[in-house]
């Protein structure tokens, strides 16, 4: 892998730091009136999701990380791993472990396309689409006519996710959910 000097650091560049692949979020030059220049760099550790602030002397370099984001369709869970398939016609399959899937597990639905981040060809994270349509498998019976008022109740979706839904929603309905906030958007 190539290495990158501080002046090449820009948002989105993937580099290795302390053995983990990281995504550069921000890079700011700081320099005293006379003297050494530094780069104050914000990086997101792609393994842990944590953000790091590090300072480098200008001109120092980091090794690039072999990290790729690839769209894949979710296939099934074998009790241990989650299996995905590329959508480019290659039918190439990848298995993601619990650590990589993380909170996205509750939004996994067969045939939906997710973004997998691969590091050295291994999935390290799985991101859901911003919106997903899921069926309600359990909720209190709907209140007829209560379509305008506020008020909400819990509902369990087909993937196991729990969301707050309006009172008029019934079991068996399909809903559009925002996966970023985990909130109900509308009936699908």
């Amino acid at each position: 892998m190539a290495s990158y000097s501080t002046n090449e650091f820009k948002g989105g560049l993937k580099v290795m730091l302390d053995g983990d692949p990281c995504n550069i979020v921000e890079n700011e030059l700081v320099k005293p009136g006379k003297g050494q220049a530094f780069n104050r760099v914000k990086l997101r550790n792609l393994m842990t999701g944590r953000t790091w602030e590090r300072t480098f002397k200008s001109g120092e370099s980091l090794e690039g990380a072999d990290v790729l984001d690839i769209d894949m369709e979710y296939l099934y869970n074998d009790g241990d791993m989650w299996h995905f398939m590329r959508t480019d016609g290659s039918f190439e399959q990848f298995a993601a472990d619990k650590k990589a899937v993380g909170d996205t597990a509750k939004w996994l639905k067969e045939q939906v396309v997710y973004t997998l981040t691969l590091w050295n060809d291994n999935p390290i994270s799985v991101s859901p689409p911003n919106f997903i349509e899921l069926e309600v498998v359990e909720t209190d019976p709907g209140l007829k006519g209560d379509t305008a008022q506020g008020g909400s109740k819990p509902a369990t979706l087909s993937t196991g996710a729990m969301v707050r839904v309006p009172l008029f929603i019934n079991q068996g309905e399909t809903l559009k959910i925002d996966t970023r906030s985990g909130e109900y958007v509308s009936r699908a």
Binding site: V30, K31, P32, G35, Q36, R40, T55
Partner: peptide
């Protein structure tokens, strides 16, 4: 491995 001036420059700036 930093020199005294490197450390001082950084602490001054930051």
């Amino acid at each position: 491995e930093w020199s005294r001036d490197d450390c001082c420059d950084l602490l001054m700036s930051l």
